[in-house]
C-alpha cells in the first residue's frame, strides 16, 4: 500500500515593506494636517460665510475667543455663560495675565465667533461689555466662502 506523501508546506512570509511605507506616509499626512489650536472652537456655532474676510495674519499673542450661541449664551473657556455680566472676572483674569507680561488690554484681540442666526444685538452687547473692560480690538470670525 502506498501512503500519500505529505508535502511540507513552506512558511509563507509576506513582504510587509510596502505596507509599512504606505502606513508611515499616511501617519505623516494626518500628523501634518492635525490642528490642536482649534480646540477653542465650539462645534455648536455655525458661522456665517463671507468671501471677502481676510485669513488670520499671524498667531495672536493675546486673544480671547468668545463663541456666541444662537440663543445668545456666550461660550468661553468651555464655560457656557448666559449672563454676560459674569464675564467680567474672566476678562479680568485675561487682562491681568497680559499685564503681567507688560501688555495693555488694548493689545488683546477679542475673537467673536457668532452663530449665523444669533441676534446681532447680543453680539453688540458683548462688544460693549468688552469695551467696559478696555478691550477694543475685535475680529468677527466667519467661514470662508469660495
Amino acid at each position: 500500500m502506498k501512503f500519500p506523501i505529505k508535502k511540507r508546506t513552506a512558511v509563507q512570509e509576506v513582504d510587509l515593506t510596502p505596507m509599512i511605507d504606505m502606513t508611515f506616509q499616511l501617519i505623516a499626512f494626518f500628523m501634518i494636517l492635525i490642528n490642536f489650536s482649534d480646540s477653542e472652537r465650539s462645534e455648536e456655532i455655525k458661522l456665517p460665510t463671507s468671501a471677502l474676510a481676510k485669513p488670520p495674519k499671524d498667531l495672536l499673542d493675546y486673544k480671547i475667543i468668545l463663541n456666541v450661541d444662537e440663543d445668545g449664551s456666550v461660550l468661553m473657556d468651555g464655560l457656557k455663560i448666559a449672563n454676560i455680566d459674569l464675564l467680567n472676572p474672566l476678562f479680568s483674569r485675561e487682562i491681568n495675565q497680559a499685564q503681567r507680561e507688560g501688555k495693555s488690554p488694548q493689545q488683546i484681540t477679542v475673537i467673536l465667533r457668532g452663530h449665523e442666526d444669533s441676534k446681532t444685538g447680543d453680539l453688540q452687547r458683548l462688544m460693549a461689555k468688552c469695551q467696559e473692560n478696555e478691550l477694543e480690538n475685535f475680529l468677527l470670525r466667519v467661514k470662508e466662502r469660495k
Binding site: I27, F30, P56, R141, V142
Partner: peptide
C-alpha cells in the same frame, strides 16, 4: 503604527478655513 494611524484618522476633520473682519471700537 496602526494605532497611531487610527488616532489621526479619527481626529481628522475637514473644515473650511475661518477668516476675519477686523473691527476697532475704542470706548
Amino acid at each position: 503604527v496602526f494605532q497611531l494611524l487610527a488616532f489621526f484618522i479619527i481626529t481628522f476633520r475637514i473644515t473650511a478655513q475661518e477668516t476675519d473682519f477686523t473691527i476697532k471700537m475704542p470706548l
